[in-house]
Each structure stands twice: as structure tokens, then as C-alpha cells.
Simulated assay, not measured.
Amino acid sequence: MTTIFYARVSTADQTLSHQVSQARAAGFEIDEVLSDHGVSGVSTALRDRPEAKRLFDKLRKGDTLVVRWVDRLGRNYADVTDTIREFIRRGVTIRTVINNMTFDGTPQDPMQEAVRDALIAFMAATAQAQAEATKEAQKAGIAAAKMNTTKYRGKKPSYDRATLGDVVRLLGNGLGASAVAKMTGLKRQTVLRIRKDPSVAEAALQKWGL
């Protein structure tokens, strides 16, 4: 039985070493690492990515696929749900580093299967919604930065783009500001400001070129 860690590295802040270190720090024992860099999680299906498509050849019954969160598999609802269910049918266990979620074929009762599938659907939908929200926030942030004609950029953000994405996603999952602050290492007030207007937080990153 093999444990494969898959990473999709979409920004400079989400380095492969960071994702792997985070997984190992959480107690995961990894046998192999596969990663794709600079590929869109929205427009590119998992099986169409250079390294990710190897998962479909490598993963066998009893193997475990570990990802930082389901959004590393993709940000397209249909693709993510179809992929996870296909791996489960093969007897593969899917685990996430964040939230420590486990999806496998253990549930035999139809009701339990329905609950599992509903959770998969919710997480996949959240990943796509966050991608769409981030895209809109980036547009608003760029527009706000262009409107600012002064040289003063304000205080440098205490978060990077990856952390901002985590905050938006965790808040979208229903977590409170205090819990999100603890999980991301940010101050509660910072999380509250991001929750109030993500586009302002994105604008701050734009101003500092982060």
C-alpha cells in the first residue's frame, strides 16, 4: 500500500516544499510526491495535467492519496467530485491535510454513503466558489490599486496570497474569526477585516506587489 502526496502549485506562495512539509508535520508518512506547477485548477481537469494524470495509473486498491485540501485536486465542481468518487470506487483512500478529512469506501449503508458524497460535493463546490470569489477580488484589487495615485501604500499586509486564500475558504466553510486566526496565525482583527471586504485585502497585496 502506497501513500502518494499530490500538490498543485498555483502561486509563488504555495511552494511544493511548504505543502509537503505541512503534510509531514501533520503526521502523514509519504512514499511518493507528484506535483504540477502553474496549472489552472478551474479550466484544467486533473487527468489532463502532466503529473496528476499519473495518479490514474499509479493508484491501486489500498493506496492513499493525500492532498493539502480538495482545491489542490481542482476548483471545478464536476471534475473534483467525479475524480474523488472514481478513486473511491478503486478502493483508494483520499485524505486532506487541512481539516484532516478522510474519504473512502468504508460507508456501506446508503445513508452513510449519501452523507459522505454530500460532504465531498460541498467541499468541491466551496473550492470552485472560492476560486470565483478570488478572481473577482483580484479584479477589484487591481482596480483599487490603479485608482490610488499616491505613493503611500499603507502598512504591509501580514498575510501572503496563499494565506488570504485560506482565510476566505475557511470563513466560507463557516468557521469563526477566532478559529480562522488560530489556524492561519493571523490576528483576529486581520481576519475580520478580510471577512468584511476581501477585495480590500487583495488590493493591499497588489499595492505591495505580493
Rank of each mutant, 00 (worst) to 15 (best):
V66L: 04
L46H: 02
D109T: 13
T3L: 07
V115G: 02
I88G: 09
T11L: 05
R72W: 07
A177M: 05
I88F: 00
M123F: 11
K58E: 09
D109Q: 12
A23G: 02
M1T: 08
S158T: 15
N173R: 11
T15A: 12
A124K: 07
D13L: 02
R188C: 08
L65N: 00
L59M: 02
R85I: 03
N76M: 01
A45F: 01
A140P: 06
H18G: 15
D82S: 13
G174I: 06
R68T: 06
T11K: 02
A131M: 10
A201D: 05
S199M: 06
L205W: 08
R153C: 03
I194A: 05
D104W: 06
V80L: 07
D79I: 05
V180A: 14
R85W: 11
A144G: 00
A121L: 09
R188L: 11
N99L: 12
A127V: 15
A114S: 15
L59A: 09
G27W: 13
R60L: 02
G27T: 11
Y77N: 03
D82N: 12
I94S: 00
D117K: 06
D166N: 14
A144F: 04
K139S: 09
L73D: 01
T2H: 00
F28C: 03
L175C: 01
R68Y: 14
I98C: 11
A203H: 05
K135E: 14
A78F: 09
Q138N: 05
Q22S: 11
S40H: 04
A133W: 11
T190I: 01
K156S: 12
A179Y: 03
K53P: 03
A201W: 07
Q138P: 04
D63R: 02
D79V: 01
D71W: 10
A201I: 06
I84L: 15
L192G: 00
I30P: 09
A201H: 06
L192Y: 06
